[in-house]
Design a binder for these strands. Structure first.
Lengths: 127, 127
DNA sequence: TCAGTAGGTTACCTCAAGGAAACCGCCATG
DNA sequence: CATGGCGGTTTCCTTGAGGTAACCTACTGA
């Protein structure tokens, strides 16, 4: 009963796949991780060092979520201190390509956005 | 000193434009709103009715953020009960196009994701 | 006069995300 | 002997996002 909208598909309903994926990507770390793993398989602590600002715990949680979604894979090696490598799956790679387009958009339009913010803030001050 | 990574641009630094945009989009309502406004200018309460689950307050806040970023524009009409219309700006429209690709990806791959989740959960249970 | 619509803002409260830090086993190095 | 790296998990605590609901102006209709 929730999805009775005019002609719009069901983007605004709660069980819409798009919405599900957006919610997952809404995790800012997820996108970053996915992008980082496009550069090749990487170990836990290497990721932790590379991605500035993420905590130990959240990194662990986010990796789990991505693995559950089949976007990345985890491989443990029985080396002396156990080594664990994460890498993007083929599925993850296709998504990463899409995310890269957002990056491109962002880099292209960041100036315009910042200008819009300045203009907005200036307007607000003069009120 | 934060952005000394091998060949990767500065995607992982804090002031990276991509990261900024991702953070904004990370707001699940923002994406939904942007998409909804692609269907034409819409008034506040209409948006509130259409986008299931968003609260009065959060709708208001999200619209402000998007307006500040120059992605949507707000136009008030001095009608009897004041009428306010929101619409996507040209900038907002270009982003919306990119977001639409994520939707497409989501619709294409949702089955695979759900299967991956099932497999993962099954594996977890058997442990 | 009371209710309803339009477009908000404000106050209050709750709940969950996330940071910090400790702990785990196991090994190597100083 | 103890510190550090590896790959985590668990506990504790804080903060902030977001829900609910009341309030606002201004007008219309019953």
């Amino acid at each position: 009963m929730l999805q009775r909208f005019h002609d719009i598909p069901d983007v605004f309903s709660l069980n819409c796949p798009t919405r599900m994926v957006l919610d997952r990507l809404a995790d800012k770390w997820a996108m970053l991780l996915l992008r980082r793993l496009m550069d090749g398989p990487t170990r836990f602590n290497q990721l932790h060092r590379d991605i500035q600002g993420i905590s130990h715990k959240v990194l662990s949680q986010t990796l789990k979520k991505l693995e559950r979604d089949g976007l990345i894979s985890r491989q443990a090696f029985a080396t002396v201190p156990v080594t664990v490598e994460y890498r993007a799956t083929p599925l993850g790679e296709t998504l990463s390509g899409t995310v890269a387009q957002i990056s491109l958009w962002a880099e292209t339009n960041i100036t315009e956005i910042l200008q819009a913010q300045d203009a907005y803030d200036t307007r607000a001050e003069t009120l």
